[in-house]
C-alpha cells in the first residue's frame, strides 16, 4: 500500500526515519505521570458511571493467551464474550475475543454471527523473536482462519538498537499480510521504558500502517500504565491533526478493575477527545476486568455489592 500520508523521504533511510522520530517533541516523564494522576482523580458517579461501564464492556478485547489454551477454554471465553452476564441480557457484548493464531479457527466458529470479532496475536507473540517469514506465515494463517484483527508485536530489539527502518518495514510487511484484517501494533512499552520511546514507536507504527497502537503483550510489566496510555493518546490525537487519519489505541495488561477502566476512559475523553470513545477506536485488552465491570454494573443498578461467586469465571 503506498504511503500517502507520511512526509516525503521519511523512510528513505534509517537515518531519515531516525531524524524524524527524534524530532518529535520529547515527553517529560514526571509531567506526564502527573497529568495522568490528575485525571485519575476525576470522580465518575451515577449516570456517568453507568455509561462508562457499558462502554467499557463494549470495548473489551476478551483475551486468553496461555500455553494451556484448549478448544474448550476458547469456546467458554467466546460464550462469555457474547453474553457477559447470562442473567442479564441488557449487558452488551464485548468487542472481540483475542487468542493465539492457532486458536483462531475455534474462536471464529464459536462466535459466528455474534457480532464479536476475533482478534489474533501473531508475529511470534510475545517476544517477536522469529524470522520475518515465520511472522508473516503466522499472520497469514490467522487471517486465513478468519481473524478480523491482528495484534502484532514490534521488534523491540531492533527499535532499541536504533534500527527503526527494520521495525517499520516489518510492520508494513505484516500489514500487507493482513489484507482486510485490522492491524494492531503492540509496542510493548514496558520494554521501551521511556515515554520518549513510546511516542516514537507510536508514530513509527502509525506511519507504517497500524490501525491501532497497543501498549503491551500482557507478558511484561509494567504494561498499560496511565501515563503510557496518555502518551499514546496524545500521539493518535496529533497524528490525526497532522495526517487526517484516526488511529485507535488499545491498552492491554494490568487493567483489572472498573476504576482502572474508567480512568482510561477519562483519559480518552480529555486527551484524545470524545471521538475516540468508541470501540472502533479504543479497546481494552483484558481477561479479569470484565467480571469486575459486571459486578460494578450490578452494584450501580441494585445498590448491593456483589461477590465473585455470582459471576462466571471465563
Amino acid at each position: 500500500m503506498p504511503d500517502t500520508i507520511s512526509p516525503p523521504g521519511l523512510t528513505a533511510s534509517n537515518a531519515s526515519l531516525r531524524a524524524y522520530l527524534h524530532g518529535l517533541p520529547g515527553v517529560d516523564e514526571v509531567g506526564a505521570a502527573q497529568r495522568a494522576a490528575g485525571l485519575a482523580t476525576r470522580s465518575i458517579k451515577t449516570t456517568a458511571k453507568a455509561q462508562a461501564i457499558d462502554l467499557a464492556i463494549r470495548m473489551v478485547d476478551l483475551t486468553t493467551l496461555e500455553g494451556a489454551d484448549t478448544p474448550g477454554k476458547v469456546r467458554a471465553l467466546a460464550a462469555k464474550a457474547v453474553h457477559p452476564d447470562p442473567a442479564d441480557p441488557s449487558v452488551p457484548r464485548v468487542a472481540a475475543v483475542c487468542v493465539y493464531s492457532d486458536r483462531v479457527a475455534i474462536a471464529v466458529e464459536a462466535l459466528r454471527g455474534s457480532g464479536v470479532a476475533v482478534a489474533s496475536v501473531a508475529t511470534a507473540f510475545p517476544a517477536g523473536r522469529a524470522p520475518l517469514e515465520a511472522k508473516l506465515a503466522d499472520t497469514r494463517q490467522a487471517v486465513a482462519d478468519g481473524a478480523a484483527e491482528i495484534d502484532m508485536v514490534i521488534d523491540r530489539g531492533a527499535f532499541l538498537s536504533g534500527d527503526y527502518l527494520k521495525v517499520y518495514e516489518e510492520i508494513t510487511a505484516v500489514k500487507e499480510a493482513c489484507g482486510d484484517a485490522h492491524l494492531k501494533v503492540i509496542l510493548e512499552t514496558g520494554e521501551l521504558v521511556t515515554y520518549d520511546n513510546v511516542r516514537r514507536a507510536s508514530w513509527l507504527a502509525m506511519h507504517a500502517g497500524a490501525d491501532f497502537i497497543k501498549t503491551s503483550t500482557g507478558k511484561v510489566s509494567p504494561a498499560a500504565t496511565l501515563p503510557v496510555v496518555l502518551v499514546m493518546l496524545e500521539a493518535v490525537r496529533d497524528f490525526r491533526a497532522a495526517t487526517g487519519r484516526r488511529i485507535g489505541v488499545k491498552p492491554a495488561g494490568g487493567i483489572r478493575t472498573t476504576k482502572d477502566a474508567v480512568r482510561n476512559l477519562v483519559l480518552v475523553n480529555e486527551v484524545a477527545g470524545a471521538d475516540w470513545l468508541d470501540p472502533a477506536y479504543f479497546r481494552i485488552g483484558a481477561s479479569s476486568l470484565l467480571n469486575d465491570l459486571l459486578m460494578q454494573r450490578t452494584k450501580l443498578a441494585t445498590g448491593v455489592y456483589g461477590g465473585p461467586d455470582y459471576y462466571t469465571l471465563d
Partner: peptide, 10 residues
Amino acid sequence: ADDIFTYAPA
C-alpha cells in the same frame, strides 16, 4: 459518544 462523560456532579 456524544453524551458520555458529561460527568455527573460529584
